[in-house]
Each structure stands twice: as structure tokens, then as C-alpha cells.
Design a protein around this nucleic acid. Structure first.
Lengths: 157, 157
DNA sequence: GAGTCCCTTGTTACGGTATAACGTTTTGGG
DNA sequence: CCCAAAACGTTATACCGTAACAAGGGACTC
């Protein structure tokens, strides 16, 4: 089964209108608190991610950017910034990016990814706390963690 | 700190000689048991992965394949096969592939990846068993799992 | 206000990653 | 032998991401 095969793919609900404005303005505050700048391109990419409400490919962001689109480095730089500050995550197994529902708080990411409709759910990283024990046992200093589970969401089962 | 910065990058010890032959012949047995075929290209790619003893990029496999190299689809098909049967894993965060030390037994993969020397250690997937609970709570049917931890291995600390 | 620094951006071009689509060959079973 | 399924070879192309360098712009000092 591949993505889009089951007819549920339209379900991801992104932000719009007032909720979107509020999220962006909230982001502006937290960026300022971190002594960084939420520039136009960074704000625009975050806006696109929030509107999408789910994983988005980098080149879709590039195409949707507006004014005829943006050049790749513009979007990739913005994504790097958003990841660094915890506003977005990269989904390694999809080559896609997603806005973080716990925006602004830097944390490890863990996801459930529906193979059918493409929806994602971010879950609590504590579920993988056992990794710390394993890392310790190997003399390994843990710095970051990616956990991506594939399967079927409730709607697609 | 980026890969290769600390001078430990040569440590991954791959298989060679008799051990390599033994591993390949063992693989042949398990492939046959699964009612599949270990063809020349599949065998060659597995051999390259085992020799490397660590993550290898697809295009390095293509270049190293021999006889002037192979075409991309040849190697990607072999990798897909090896993954399907549990002889190799894809490291999503590195765009690389690695032979599986528990070859032939299909299982979830979990890795510690050294950001300095590039070495990887495969750890037991039980460390992430809590994901099953989270998936259940979301009504999510779990089918596969990727866990990749980044940090520093003992030698590089 | 001129100089300077650093961060951010714009732009071009390129390299690495992976797959589509096709026809051909091999394999194993009837 | 003949057929169907699996595997392969080949060409071409699409997708993903970054290198490199020039230029803008705000904050700070002198």
C-alpha cells in the first residue's frame, strides 16, 4: 500500500486565518526571546508549513512560496533555522518537513507516519527513553534522536 | 563537529577472507530458506556492505561494484532486496546503507550513529518498545520503525 | 557619520540521490 | 516445450540538497 491509496489523504488540517496569525505572532515572540530574527523568508516558510498541517516536501515549499517561487537555498536556509529553533522537524524517511505542534520548545522528535494518507502525529520522545540506557552501555554520548514509525492511522485502518 | 573531524574515522572493521565467505554462504542459505534467490548483483552488493563494516553510500556501492561499476537501478534493486530480507538497513539520516549484524532475521532497526567518525552500532529495538503503547493510544497500526540516534562514540568522545 | 562586523540574503551552478519506463533475459513449473 | 513471473540491463530523467561568492542591512564603535 502506498500513500494516497485509500482515499483519506485530504484529512490533514492546517491552520488558517486567526489561528495562523496567532501562531505566527507567537513564533515571532519566541524567536525574539532567543535573540534571533524571524525574517520574511523564515516567516513565510513557517506559514506554509502551518497552513499545510502535515509533511511538506521542500520543493513544494519552493513552488508555493509565492511571487513565482523562491530559489532552493532560500527555503533550505529557512528550514534549517526553523529546525534549529524547534519550529519544524525534518522527516528523514519522507524527505519532508513538518511544523512542530510544540513550536519553540527544543526537543527530540518522534513521529507516527501513516503510509496510506501521509498524516503524521508527533508523539512524546519519552517513549524512547530506553535509548539513553543503550547509548550509555555503548559508551555513546547522545546528542539527538530521530524516531519515525510507519503504519496506518486510525482513519486508514 | 562534522564527520571525519576527529581522526578516528578508519576504525570500522569490515569482514574479509574466510569470515566474508562464511557470511555470504550463510546468507545464501537463509535466502534459499525464504524461497528467494541470491543473484550475482544481490550477492555482490551484500559483499560490499559486509566488507565496508559500516554505512556506505549507494553511489559508492555503484562505483565499487566492479567491472567499471554498475548502473544505479542495479544497486538500488539489490539494496531493496537486502532490506526486505533483513540483510541490510537504510540509514535515513545519512542516505546510506549498512549490513545488518543480525542478518536474515527481519526486525526493527535502531542505530547509534557517531557524528565524528561515522561508525554505527545497531542496538536492540526493545529500547523503543514504548512506541507501541503510544501508537496504540493513537489508534495507529504499527508496521515498521526507524530509530537513529546521533552523538559521539566512545572512541571519539 | 564613517567604518566595521556579522548575519542574512540573492544568484548561479552543480553534485548527489533515486526512480520511471522500457525491453530483454532467466528461471521454474506445467 | 511453453508460459508466466521474477530479475536484469539500459536510457533517461526527476528529485533533493548544497557550494561558492557577491551583495544587502542592522548594530556597534569611534
Amino acid at each position: 500500500m502506498s500513500k494516497g491509496a485509500c482515499g483519506h489523504e485530504g484529512e490533514a488540517a492546517g491552520l488558517a486565518g486567526r489561528a495562523l496569525d496567532a501562531a505566527l505572532s507567537e513564533a515571532g515572540v519566541r524567536v525574539a526571546a532567543a535573540d534571533e530574527r524571524l525574517t520574511d523568508s523564515r516567516r513565510r516558510v513557517l506559514e506554509l508549513l502551518l497552513e499545510a498541517g502535515g509533511p511538506v516536501k521542500a520543493y513544494d515549499l519552493i513552488a508555493a512560496y509565492g511571487q513565482g517561487g523562491a530559489k532552493p537555498p532560500t527555503v533550505y536556509r529557512a528550514l534549517e533555522f526553523l529546525e534549529r529553533l524547534g519550529f519544524a522537524h525534518r522527516l528523514e524517511s519522507l524527505n519532508a518537513y513538518v511544523a512542530c505542534p510544540r513550536s519553540g520548545e527544543v526537543h527530540a522528535a518522534a513521529f507516527l507516519i501513516c503510509q496510506c494518507c501521509g498524516a503524521t502525529a508527533e508523539i512524546e520522545p519519552e517513549v524512547s527513553a530506553g535509548v539513553e540506557v543503550a547509548a550509555e552501555a555503548h559508551g555513546f554520548e547522545l546528542r539527538g534522536l530521530t524516531l519515525e514509525a510507519r503504519g496506518l492511522c486510525g482513519a486508514c485502518r
